[in-house]
């Protein structure tokens, strides 16, 4: 396999006494989508900020494009696109002007800027809104503009911090399709998310992070196979205690979270049989997914 585009060893970050990123190792392969999946406070944003040289590292070594960080941060950022966790479009400018101004920060020659803006507006489906003020855009449009802005320098690597948090499902799907297009063109994507569906759809490889550590790493499929049984039977609400009773002796691993119970199993037949005989009990039988891995690894207590 070719050289990784990013290589981190013992990457570490402390904010005073607080140990936000605790010596993590990872390699990001070129041309793939690499995800950081983790609950709030896991250290995802902090890790991305270190990749870009936007926060000093407290320890470890890091190279991006084979360049040592943070020494070469400016050269790295010249070749990278960034979509921050919260949009920070320039409210003093229109949609098209936002792209033009951003191009000027990269020193892109003026003659090249106009065609790029046209192409990016089309990519983001914002051509009609080129002259609109950014605060008149919907959340989804602002996000698309932020993504278009991140592409102004034709980056080899695009870093996206929770690209679809807070968007409605339609807007989310549009963004997913744009990101797939980008990856298909060979751009390396790094994204953080706490949406399992997003990670499963987009990421070729991901790390699950919590409390500043990497808990495991692999393709979504490999993670699922490694950590959970292939079948899940879920019972919600009052009836969930029935599942616990019924699941006994049929080869199930039972988990509980708030008002639901889950049975993870390789042989669902026996339990399904029992459940069908219980009158009026609703249950859900589904294949195991990333969410089950995530909950298993990061625990089930509530985060805020």
């Amino acid at each position: 396999m070719s050289e990784p585009i990013i290589s981190a060893r013992g990457l570490d970050k402390r904010y005073g006494d607080f140990h936000a990123v605790q010596g993590i190792d990872f390699d990001v392969p070129r041309g793939r989508c690499f995800g950081f999946l983790g609950p709030n406070g896991a250290g995802k944003t902090t890790t991305l900020r270190m990749l870009l040289g936007l926060t000093p590292m407290s320890g470890g070594s890091l190279s991006v494009f084979g360049l040592p960080m943070p020494a070469e941060a400016r050269r790295v950022r010249a070749r990278t696109g960034v979509v921050p966790q919260a949009d920070n479009l320039d409210p003093d400018f229109t949609v098209a002007e936002n792209l033009a101004i951003y191009a000027s920060y990269f020193g892109i020659p003026r003659a090249e800027v106009a065609p790029r803006i046209e192409r990016l507006l089309a990519f983001a489906a914002l051509t009609e809104r080129a002259d609109a003020r950014t605060d008149s855009l919907s959340g989804g449009m602002q996000r698309r503009l932020t993504i278009a802005r991140a592409l102004i320098n034709d980056p080899e690597l695009v870093v996206l911090d929770e690209p679809t948090t807070g968007l409605d499902p339609q807007a989310r799907h549009v963004i997913w399709s744009r990101l797939s297009d980008l990856r298909d063109r060979g751009t390396t994507l790094i994204l953080t998310t706490h949406y399992m569906e997003e990670a499963e759809r987009l990421c070729d490889e991901l790390v699950i992070m919590d409390h500043g550590r990497i808990l495991d790493q692999g393709s979504p499929r490999a993670l699922i196979d490694r950590h959970v049984e292939p079948d899940v039977i879920e019972v919600r609400g009052e009836a969930s205690r029935h599942l616990i009773a019924l699941a006994e002796g049929v080869g199930c691993r039972v988990e509980q979270m708030s008002t639901s119970s889950y049975c993870y199993t390789r042989e669902p037949g026996a339990l399904l049989e029992k459940l069908r005989n219980e009158h009026g009990l609703t249950f859900l039988h589904r294949p195991a997914g990333l969410e089950d891995v995530f909950l298993k690894l990061t625990g089930r207590e509530l985060r805020d």
Binding site: R77, T80, P84, A86, N88, Y105, F106
Partner: peptide, 14 residues
């Protein structure tokens, strides 16, 4: 409030 610098800092500028 506007976080314009945050946006600029993602470019090569410091």
């Amino acid at each position: 409030p506007q976080r314009t610098y945050e946006a600029i800092l993602a470019s090569p500028l410091e």
